[in-house]
Design a binder for these strands. Structure first.
Lengths: 167, 167
DNA sequence: ACATTACGCTACTGGTAGTAGCGTAATGGG
DNA sequence: CCCATTACGCTACTACCAGTAGCGTAATGT
């Protein structure tokens, strides 16, 4: 979909706040009303956009540690992609004050990953949810505080931390 | 300051999004222009409000583990207080798209805690920053995703995770 | 009593999400 | 080939909120 590419490009160039629906529509060569015909809100559009950009979690590796390490590296890499981190942080921040968007994020975004991870790791739900909170929360907090994605070294430290904890 | 109490109360009752400057002013029995005479923006007001509500980190305990544990418990408890979590998450989310507010948050809010923790723990800056990212990021992510603060049990698990990692 | 400062109030700007309504182009079946 | 249906573009709106201007008034302190 051209709209998704235009959305990420606009966010990358103008930031999340600067990426208004008018501008996204213009960048996609589409009328704003068309966006609202397909997505119920700006948050819904960006959530779908991220879902498209991220795709499923690659759960490679034979051992449990390998699987978890690859998952952490994957989400860290995705968040580093131009526009994706700002989009993620932005839509998440909007969701805090918008229960409807929070619902969308929780079901359409977090749910699939939670199920895939539970399947691959054989852990109970609350463990998986804590795992997601720690990884995503930390990466987004760094992104929000500095405007830059987390460094390779800190990502490695974070990975070790989690591997040791959820053993 | 009555304004701080009114701000937290309004956020608690109406959520971060519902807590407009007009409503905060009304709740405080003050004109909106008065708020803007004292604080340069809504974010600045809430940052000061949180600074007032949180106060300094209590760094109790003789051992390193005790200090870190008490710090984690403290911030988790503060975030659980009515209005404080929503205010924290809200101002943080605004900061993502507002470099000026990010500056305020980084210098007036994160800086003092970073210095205090570095002093107490004797760790290099990047370790302290990662510590803050993990703790605050995780707690806020949970708050943002569920609307509720993290449970005692998960907070304990988080604490153990960090104690083991930053050893 | 007077000057200064802080505050209240009304009214405004600028910007954004989201909507209504209408005309027009694409599409697909008969 | 025609027609109905659907999707889209466009203009013009509403509603809402952060932040500001300007003016009058009350507090304050000297």
């Amino acid at each position: 979909m051209t709209v998704f590419a235009a959305t990420l490009r606009t966010i990358h160039e103008l930031g999340y706040a600067g990426a208004t629906m008018d501008r996204i529509a213009a960048a996609a060569g589409v009328a704003k009303t068309t966006l609202y015909r397909r997505w119920s809100s700006k948050g819904a559009l960006i959530a779908d956009c991220l879902l498209d950009a991220f795709g499923p979690v690659p759960l490679n590796g034979s051992s449990r540690d390998d699987v978890m390490t690859s998952a952490v590296r994957w989400i860290a890499r995705k968040i580093s992609e131009p526009g994706a981190g700002a989009a993620f942080a932005g839509v998440f921040s909007d969701a805090i004050n918008d229960p409807a968007l929070r619902e969308i994020l929780a079901t359409r975004f977090q749910e699939p990953y939670r199920l895939a991870l539970r399947e691959a790791l054989g852990e109970p739900d609350d463990r998986i949810l804590l795992f997601i909170d720690v990884v995503t929360g930390t990466l987004l907090h760094r992104m929000g505080m500095t405007g830059e994605p987390m460094s390779e070294g800190d990502t490695a430290t974070l990975t070790d931390m989690i591997l040791n904890a959820l053993r």
